[in-house]
Design a protein around this nucleic acid. Structure first.
Lengths: 222, 222
DNA sequence: TTTTTATCGAGAAAATTTTCTCGATATATT
DNA sequence: AATATATCGAGAAAATTTTCTCGATAAAAA
């Protein structure tokens, strides 16, 4: 009973694959037909071998000398992430960030279709944001059960995030994309992806700090 | 000339440290005085040894049996990231996402103070968003030079991101927080932190997919 | 047609990150 | 005061991820 898990793709590879996809869409628009790992590496400042290893996870096989056909590679990555089948999702918390996410119309290309937003504010309930209706938070559990929604996006203030998560799970949700800066406690088998911007800021400021030290200027200030 | 680099903190550790800080602020508000790596591990479902290793990077030393004094640990993490010294920053692109970031008032606690936003839209120029003035994009380079701004946040559409980055660098910016889904080409020594939500979505959907397969339901659909 | 060149894929090696182990020690309990 | 307990920090071991090496091969050039 040691290790029966499926050999799963490393998380860094998953993140890089998403970036390759962005690049591929762009190059395809520019009319390019095929691409090598070397070129991807050049474009994204990463190592060609690593690019090949990442791409291997999608199952596609390239050709020596030419690399991969862009359209096939796009299809392989999308299939790998199952982004050809779009999942409906609910978003809870129609504040600034929620609004920004509702306004970003491209998630459908990444398998996510937000069908309703929920909020407690009477001013918002009944309105539409970018054609997505804002409904009463009280109806969340009932609706997600009836509509068989599997993904919930939490963009509420941190104080209510755990309660919202509980409600979502009660309504049958399987995966939560959490933007509130709190670690959600969820039962086994529920997926949580925690996206908090201060984490990125931590990396940014630390690197900036390091760079300043390397530059040997500013050292007095730091 | 092999490896003269400063032994730098792993990026996953940086991200985790930011999460510890969130937790510590919360527990401090609840009146707790000290905390052990075991408790942090329980709260965030991570390994106590890993928590200790992460915390070691900040230089603080804990006590057996009791752990760390929360206020001291907060101070140590903030100092580690240099978040006690707030840096002024510019944001370019006052659309949905830009607005959301301007509206999130807590970045000051994480060392980032956005002093102005920039946009090309005449409707926006001259207005204020959450008390932050929106200025004409044309004035970007000039102002960032004069105000000695070192950090730029890009929340424009993907098409203009590279051009904006070039302008920011021309204006003397050292670090860019990029939300546009494109790999920016920048000269050596410029820090870029690329935050793109589809990367998180990649991880989320892949895990969800895997979970569904484990559950052995839905396999027909997938 | 033969040679050259660019790139793939696979396995090995290196580097990094996480997890394990354990002696030391501060606090609580007997 | 002596004993028990929880936790730290440091070094070792394990696991994971990245990078290197190289034979095979498809396309282009000679």
């Amino acid at each position: 009973m040691e290790n029966h898990q499926i050999r799963s793709t490393p998380e860094p590879s998953l993140r890089r694959l998403a970036r390759y996809l962005d690049l591929l869409h762009k190059l395809q628009k520019d009319g390019q037909i095929s691409i090598s790992s070397t070129q991807i590496g050049n474009e994204l400042s990463s190592d060609p071998t690593q690019v090949r290893k990442d791409i291997e996870y999608t199952g596609i096989i390239g050709k020596p000398k030419t690399g991969y056909v862009i359209s096939e590679l796009i299809y392989a990555i999308e299939t790998f992430f199952n982004w050809n089948n779009v999942s409906d999702a609910f978003l809870v918390g129609a504040g600034n960030l929620g609004r920004a996410i509702l306004g970003y119309g491209h998630f459908k290309k990444y398998g996510l279709n937000i069908v309703s937003a929920f909020d407690v504010s009477p001013d918002l309930i009944g309105t539409e944001i970018y054609n997505i209706p804002v409904l009463d938070y009280e109806k969340l559990t009932n609706l997600s059960q009836r509509m068989k929604i599997h993904i919930g996006v939490i963009t509420t203030p941190v104080e209510c995030a755990q309660e919202v998560a509980d409600k979502l799970i009660e309504g049958g949700i399987k995966a939560i994309w959490n933007f509130a800066p709190i670690h959600l406690k969820v039962p086994e088998g529920i997926i949580v992806e925690h996206t908090h911007l201060t984490q990125s800021l931590a990396v940014l400021t630390k690197n900036l700090h390091k760079q300043f030290l390397l530059d040997d200027k500013f050292s007095g200030e730091l």
